[in-house]
């Protein structure tokens, strides 16, 4: 196996709210190998975006350690963290909101280069910006246009170029295609894939779209209410989903064949509130297999097959069925 680039251990992120403590990310542990992609899936509000932001320390972790390329970044000082940001970047969900509306395409892509003083002469900087624009497939004539004048796909390309400008090792992609048209989604995904091959990038790919992660990720982590409930190699997860929630998720992917209809598992019941959680399996209230045991303890993430971890009592006791 190749070496580990990102190692996240027992990371927690709690928010204080008037009603109590909100467990946005609760004891999450995973690692990503260099040059690989970890897909993080889950429904809205499950903490996947928060995890991405905590990993980059855009949000301060409440607890836990984040080790990027051998250096623990969870304790770095502000100044050191700023320079470390050269190595880790982020691609945002909404390409328009994540670009400063008062800056031109050139200025936006140039900014990281200026901040980290990577290229000091403005002429060389411009050359590099044009190069980057070519890499991400943006025509040079857009150099002095504003983001609002371009379409969604091109805006996202600006965001990608900005992230690439500092030659990062690791990029968190926070639903980079969910705001785009389906036809453009494929273009952007292909671009991200090509860039990964060319530059040896490592991705943490956050999405709620399972069909997108399948072909894109090496490993997939399924999150539910701030916890990773299943973590497995992509093909394994799709072939043998073990956690009831993962099974329900996968059954929701539409199959484009009439004769090959799958039985859909419809989840009933409400999501447990992430505030002041009881000590029970978080999925128990919606789980069709829930037993007495599930209501009295929280299952831990345990390996059921090589590289395949699940947090479910059912997977522990019985073999996968």
């Amino acid at each position: 196996m190749s070496d580990v680039l990102l190692d996240v251990k027992n990371v927690k992120k709690y928010f204080k709210t008037p009603k109590g403590i909100l467990h946005a990310v609760d004891d999450v542990t995973f690692s990503i190998n260099r040059g690989e992609t970890l897909g993080v899936v889950g429904e809205s509000g499950c903490g996947k975006s928060t995890t991405g932001r905590v990993v980059l320390r855009l949000l301060e972790p409440t607890e836990g350690s984040i080790i990027l390329d051998g250096e623990n970044i969870s304790k770095l000082s502000e100044a050191k963290l700023r320079s470390k940001r050269k190595e880790m970047q982020m691609i945002f969900q909404d390409p328009l909101a994540s670009l400063d509306p008062r800056k031109t395409v050139g200025q936006i892509i140039e900014e990281p280069l200026r901040i980290h003083n990577i290229i000091s002469s403005s002429k060389d900087r411009q050359k590099r910006v044009l190069e980057l624009m070519e890499t991400v497939g943006l025509a040079q004539r857009y150099y002095s246009t504003y983001p609002h004048e371009l379409d969604g796909g091109r805006r996202q390309r600006i965001g990608i170029a900005r992230a690439l400008s500092v030659n990062p090792k690791f990029i968190v992609c926070d639903e980079p295609v969910s705001a785009l048209d389906v036809s453009i989604q494929a273009q952007i995904l292909n671009l991200l894939e090509d860039l990964q091959k060319q530059m040896g990038l490592t991705y943490m790919f956050i999405t709620h779209d399972l069909s997108v992660v399948h072909h894109f990720s090496d490993n997939i982590a399924v999150m539910y209410l701030g916890k990773i409930i299943e973590l497995a190699p992509s093909d394994e997860l799709f072939a043998a989903p073990t956690h009831p929630y993962t099974q329900a998720l996968l059954s929701a992917i539409p199959v484009p064949k009439l004769e090959n209809r799958r039985e859909r598992i419809i989840l009933k019941g409400e999501i447990t509130s992430p505030i002041n959680l009881p000590k029970a399996c978080r999925f128990a209230s919606r789980c069709i297999y829930a037993t007495e045991q599930c209501l009295h303890g929280e299952p831990e993430l345990k390996e059921v097959a090589p590289g395949h971890k699940v947090a479910c009592y059912r997977a522990e006791s019985t073999d996968k069925t």
């Binding site: 932001r53 980059l56 855009l58 963290l81 700023r82 320079s83 940001r85 050269k86 970047q89 982020m90 945002f92 969900q93 909404d94 909101a97 994540s98 670009l99 400063d100 509306p101 900014e111 990281p112 901040i115 980290h116 965001g159 900005r162 500092v166």
Partner: peptide, 14 residues
């Protein structure tokens, strides 16, 4: 609270 400010922090702006 807007995303482009978060983006500015992500690229390491002071």
């Amino acid at each position: 609270g807007s995303e482009h400010i978060e983006a500015a922090r992500a690229i390491g702006a002071k």
